[in-house]
Amino acid sequence: MTPDTDQERQNMHEFGIAESILAAIEHRAAGRRVRQARVRAGALLRITEPAINQAFTMVAEGSAAEGARVDLVIVPARLTCRSCGQTTTSPDPFVICPGCGGADIDTEGGDDLVLESIEMAEATHVPGNPRRDRGNPE
C-alpha cells in the first residue's frame, strides 16, 4: 500500500521514527514503566514534537512506555555555502545562504536520532527489605 498524500507520507515517516524511539526506550527500560523520554533529532528529519508524540502514543500502546511523553530537541544542521564559503547552522536545512543569497549549499549533520534520557515512573512496590535499601534511614 502506498501513501496517497503528502500528509500520509509524513505520518508514515513519523511512525517509523516513533517505532525507533520506542525500541530504544524498551531496550533501556528493561520492562520498567516509562513516564518520559528526551530525544535529540536532527533538523533533516523534519519532525515536530506534537506530531512525534501523536505517533508515539499509537506505537507505544500496550508497552512499558504507554502514556509516556517524548520531549524533542531539534539539532540544527550545519550549512556551508559553496559560492561564498559562509558556514552557519539552521533548524531549517532548506534555506538560502544568509551571506550571498546563494542556494548551492552543502548540509552536514542534522540526521541524528539520539535517545538522551528516559524518566521512569515511580515504583509502587520495591521487593526486599525497605529498611536496608540504600538511601532509606535505618
Rank of each mutant, 00 (worst) to 15 (best):
P3A: 07
D6K: 09
D6A: 13
D6L: 10
Q7A: 15
E8M: 15
Q10F: 06
Q10H: 04
Q10V: 05
Q10W: 06
N11T: 03
N11K: 08
M12P: 01
M12T: 05
H13M: 14
H13W: 15
H13Q: 14
E14H: 10
E14V: 15
F15K: 01
G16E: 08
I17A: 03
I17G: 03
I17Q: 06
A18R: 12
A18E: 09
E19D: 15
E19N: 14
E19A: 14
S20C: 03
I21H: 13
I21R: 11
L22R: 11
L22F: 09
A23E: 11
A24F: 03
A24W: 05
E26M: 01
E26Q: 05
H27Y: 11
H27P: 00
R28H: 06
A30V: 08
G31N: 15
G31E: 15
R32Y: 12
R32T: 10
R33A: 06
R33F: 01
R33E: 05
R33I: 02
V34Y: 13
V34A: 10
R35Q: 13
R35A: 11
A37V: 12
A37T: 08
A37M: 07
R38G: 06
R38Q: 09
R38D: 10
R38V: 12
V39E: 06
V39P: 03
V39W: 03
R40T: 03
R40D: 04
A41F: 07
A41D: 06
G42S: 02
A43S: 15
A43Y: 12
A43C: 14
L44Q: 10
L45M: 07
L45H: 09
R46Y: 03
R46V: 02
R46A: 11
I47F: 10
I47L: 13
I47K: 12
T48C: 02
T48V: 03
E49Q: 03
P50T: 04
P50N: 01
A51C: 06
I52A: 09
I52Q: 10
I52P: 08
N53D: 06
N53Q: 07
Q54D: 09
A55V: 11
A55G: 07
A55K: 04
F56Y: 09
F56V: 09
T57S: 14
T57V: 11
T57H: 15
V59Q: 01
V59P: 01
V59I: 07
V59H: 01
A60S: 13
A60Y: 06
A60L: 04
E61L: 11
G62Y: 05
S63G: 04
S63D: 08
S63I: 05
S63H: 06
A65N: 04
A65I: 06
A65K: 08
E66W: 00
E66R: 00
E66C: 01
E66M: 00
G67I: 07
G67M: 04
A68H: 00
A68C: 00
R69L: 14
R69C: 10
L72C: 14
L72D: 08
L72E: 09
L72K: 11
V73W: 00
I74D: 02
I74V: 10
I74H: 02
V75P: 00
V75R: 01
V75Q: 02
P76I: 05
P76K: 04
R78D: 11
L79F: 09
L79P: 13
L79H: 10
T80S: 05
T80G: 00
C81Q: 03
C81I: 04
C81G: 02
C81D: 05
R82V: 09
S83G: 10
S83V: 15
C84A: 04
C84E: 03
C84S: 02
C84K: 02
